[in-house]
Lab assay of single mutants.
Amino acid sequence: RIRTTFTSAQLKELERVFAETHYPDIYTREELALKIDLTEARVQVWFQNRRAKFRK
């Protein structure tokens, strides 16, 4: 699998949801994935990585 490059619009939306909750449920992730045209798996991994970055 190649590395996913996020558009600024996708990042803006991901960060907006992250500001609300660091642990979005499956429904939130799936809805977000559809909205920004990514797979739910990519959204899930983005949140994992974002939480790791947040803890640092």
Rank of each mutant, 00 (worst) to 15 (best):
V45W: 11
I2R: 10
L38I: 13
E31V: 11
E40Y: 05
F6D: 03
S8L: 07
E31M: 07
R1L: 14
L38P: 04
F18Q: 01
R50W: 02
Q44V: 07
L38C: 14
I2G: 13
R51I: 02
Y27F: 12
R29Q: 04
E15D: 05
E30W: 06
A33T: 01
F54M: 14
I2M: 12
S8Q: 08
L34H: 13
I26P: 14
F54N: 14
V17D: 05
T7F: 02
A19E: 14
F47G: 00
E13K: 00
N49M: 09
W46P: 04
F18Y: 10
K53I: 14
V45H: 12
A41V: 08
K53D: 14
Q44I: 06
I2C: 08
L14H: 02
E31Y: 09
P24H: 04
R1H: 08
E13H: 06
A41L: 08
D37K: 12
T5P: 12
E13A: 08
E20D: 09
E30D: 05
A19Y: 03
L32H: 05
E13L: 06
L11V: 13
R3K: 15
K12T: 13
K35N: 06
K12E: 11
A52F: 09
V43I: 12
F6S: 05
E13R: 05
T7M: 02
R42V: 15
T5M: 13
Q10N: 03
D25H: 03
Q48R: 12
D37C: 12
I2D: 15
P24R: 03
Y23C: 07
D25I: 01
T39P: 11
Y23E: 06
A9E: 14
L34F: 12
E13S: 04
R55A: 15
N49L: 10
I36N: 08
L14G: 04
K35T: 07
Y23K: 04
R42C: 15
R50K: 09
K53Q: 13
Y23R: 05
K56A: 11
T21L: 05
R50D: 00
E15F: 01
R51N: 03
A41S: 09
R51P: 00
A33G: 09
T39F: 01
A33P: 00
F18W: 13
Q48W: 06
A33D: 05
S8K: 08
L38S: 15
A19Q: 12
A41R: 10
P24M: 01
L32D: 02
I2A: 13
F47I: 00
T39G: 04
T7L: 03
Y23L: 01
L11Q: 09
Q10V: 02
E20N: 10
A19I: 06
E13P: 00
S8G: 10
E20T: 11
R29I: 15
Y27L: 14
I2Y: 12
F18K: 02
I2L: 09
Q44K: 13
E30G: 08
Q48D: 09
L34E: 14
T28F: 05
A52Q: 09
E40K: 04
T28N: 01
F18A: 00
F47M: 01
N49K: 13
A9W: 09
V17C: 08
W46C: 03
V17A: 09
P24D: 06
E15S: 00
R29V: 12
V17G: 02
F47V: 01
V43M: 04
A41G: 09
Q44M: 08
T39L: 04
V45K: 13
T21F: 05
R42N: 15
R42G: 12
L38M: 11
I36C: 14
T39S: 12
Q48V: 10
E40Q: 09
F54T: 12
E15G: 01
L14I: 01
L11R: 07
A52H: 14
R42M: 15
R1C: 13
L34S: 13
R50A: 11
I36A: 10
H22L: 03
L38E: 14
R50E: 14
D25Y: 03
L32S: 03
V17P: 01
A33K: 01
A41T: 11
T21S: 08
L32V: 09
S8E: 13
R50Q: 15
K53C: 07
D25G: 04
Q48Y: 07
R51H: 01
D25F: 01
T28G: 04
L11T: 12
K35C: 07
E31I: 12
L11E: 15
R29H: 00
A52P: 00
I36R: 03
E15K: 04
F6V: 12
L14W: 01
R29D: 00
P24C: 02
T7P: 04
K53T: 12
V17R: 00
V45C: 11
R55V: 06
E30Y: 07
